[in-house]
């Protein structure tokens, strides 16, 4: 067992974990932060994306023991301090960027990382950045639109509301 301490959504947490404990398991089972989802076992679907030290990573493919001291942010930590939706989350609702909601936490976390790196991405850049996030419901149209809208771009000319 390895002792780890990390900050999750601004709160310090610590505990003993087995070497094999994945960050996704620790978040979901240890901390009951079940917004982070696990949709595959080959590190491709992206439902488990969280931020570690400000960067998007796949929490199903990272060991907690390897992240001692890390600053972790999950979907549960993305709303405004008063609990209202952040502008990115609000854009997903406004533009119908989610249906079943299962991939959504990973999409939001990836989108937030993109906008941090690239505040005004083109459609092409948004689509490319989502290479590691799979959605089966939306056909991506409204996800891409929501992310562009969240970046302050006018999306009214994009076909269909």
């Amino acid at each position: 067992m390895t002792q780890v301490t990390m900050t999750v959504n601004g709160k310090s947490v610590s505990g003993k974990v087995e070497g094999r404990t994945l960050l996704a398991e620790f978040l979901r089972e240890g901390l009951r932060l079940t917004g982070t989802h696990v949709g595959c076992d080959t590190s491709q679907c992206g439902a488990c994306v969280v931020h570690v030290n400000g960067k998007a990573i796949k929490s199903c493919t990272a060991l907690v023991a390897d992240l001692d001291g890390a600053d972790v942010r999950t979907i549960e930590g993305m709303a405004n301090p008063d609990g209202s939706l952040s502008s990115l989350q609000q854009a997903f609702q406004d533009h119908h960027g989610l249906q079943c909601g299962f991939c959504t936490p990973g999409m939001v976390m990836s989108a937030a990382a993109l906008l941090k790196e690239n505040p005004k991405p083109t459609e092409h850049e948004v689509r490319g950045y989502l290479e590691g996030n799979i959605c089966r419901c939306t056909g991506y149209h409204n996800i891409v639109k929501a992310i562009m809208a969240a970046s302050g771009q006018d999306v009214s000319q994009i076909a269909a509301e």
Partner: peptide, 22 residues
């Protein structure tokens, strides 16, 4: 085109899918 009310829980990580339940 009413906005979806279910989105609030999904966007904040508060959906309750079967494997989320303990």
């Amino acid at each position: 085109s009413s906005k979806r009310r279910e989105d609030i829980r999904f966007l904040t990580g508060r959906g309750a899918y079967t494997d989320d339940l303990a």
